[in-house]
Design a protein around this nucleic acid. Structure first.
Lengths: 210, 210
DNA sequence: GACCTTTCTGACTCGCCGTCAGATTTTCGA
DNA sequence: TCGAAAATCTGACGGCGAGTCAGAAAGGTC
């Protein structure tokens, strides 16, 4: 396994090109944030770094490929979240631990929301590369969640009607959706604290049965 | 309030045009199902009904407008679901009632999944018309859910840390996401029954505290 | 069957995508 | 330092689908 970075045509690129590629990625992230994925044109990205569209195509076959790269980078920041999901939550500390997880998830989402939304959008559209990245990211957290549910079911704290994998998926679904909807929720009176405490309570309930 | 249908330029259309418009809508739904929203080109829709692209633009300003119309039609089929969400679920029948709701939701989703996914996609992309339609559809169910949570909190069956509106949003999130992910879930061992029973259990728990 | 209204379409312009041949810059051996 | 080779960059172009519009076709009315 090497750290070499490849151009769109497969050749290994040098340090000058690496800088150009990085600039293009940063511009992509910036414009994704500013004007959304719908109006993200290769022309604009190129203009933003002061080069021609053809340069962009030296490094990426299309805009999706650049966004995919950003999505992979975002996944790295999700890994620490897993540490907050160790089995053994109890009636005393469980709710607090759930709250800590939600807090960390919120920070993660805040940092990467533009890229994560784009990733989910493309995955939803059926793009298999984005599906793979999303699944990989979700499984990070879901594996840990699943283990907690399995333990809860084994200890008879949770009903057998809960499928551990599906429950884990449901928890991730709640987290992602509520955070993605945050602005709309706020407009209807559910502020960040309400989302935080509700999410923590629901997760605590789903994972421990308390 | 009239039932008149308008062309893209605002004039009221007659019966012949109404038929053409309907054909265009049906073709849009069909192609949306068959080839996804990404490859949905006006040229194809026109060809499918045997007319020219210009005809399409007589009735819709763009493809989105046609999909939006389909999304509105889908919302009508969601209304009956509300009847299944009356307060008063108890420890005896609650789980069964939750199961009935999930069943009905699954049928609804199966019927309209192509359009609903497209609607959510566009809403997610920030299109305000699709946001409005999605919000309207979600609020149908969420209002009922919210009432049940409010009642549960008032009766001390549910903790005060649950914000009723956010909880309702979380329930809708679980339902939509798990159904949208159904094929991917199945590939990982969670079949329809697992999804059904898990969803019913989680909803029952979130709404009644049992 | 002449005239008016509604509906439909061929043909066009426009803008962005993605390519490619060749220009420019950098590297490196002598 | 020089010149050739490699790496990187770009101007200019072909292609495709979106959306427009003037006028053709169809249908209705007297």
């Amino acid at each position: 396994m090497s750290d070499d970075v490849f151009a769109a045509d497969g050749r290994i690129i040098g340090s000058r090109a690496l800088v150009t590629r990085r600039k293009l990625l940063d511009a992509t992230a910036k414009l994704l944030q500013e004007q959304g994925i719908l109006d993200l044109r290769v022309v604009d990205i190129s203009r933003d770094v002061g080069s021609s569209p053809a340069t962009f195509y030296q490094y990426f076959n299309d805009v999706d490929e650049a966004i995919l790269e950003l999505a992979k980078e975002a996944t790295d920041d999700e890994k620490p979240l897993v540490a907050l999901l160790q089995p053994g939550w109890n009636a005393l500390d469980g709710l607090e631990r759930a709250g800590q997880f939600v807090d960390a998830y919120m920070v993660y989402w805040d940092t990467h929301h533009a890229v994560l939304r784009a990733r989910n959008l493309k995955a939803e559209e059926g793009n298999r590369h984005f599906r793979a990245v999303r699944t990989e990211a979700n499984l990070l957290v879901m594996d840990a969640l699943q283990a907690m549910v399995t333990e809860g079911v084994a200890a008879k704290r949770l009903p057998e009607s809960l499928d551990p994998f599906t429950t884990a998926a449901a928890v991730v679904a709640m987290c992602e959706r509520l955070l993605a909807f945050q602005p709309e929720m706020a407009r209807r009176g559910a502020n960040r604290d309400a989302i935080r405490s509700t999410l923590a309570t629901l997760i605590y309930g789903a994972l421990t049965g308390h």
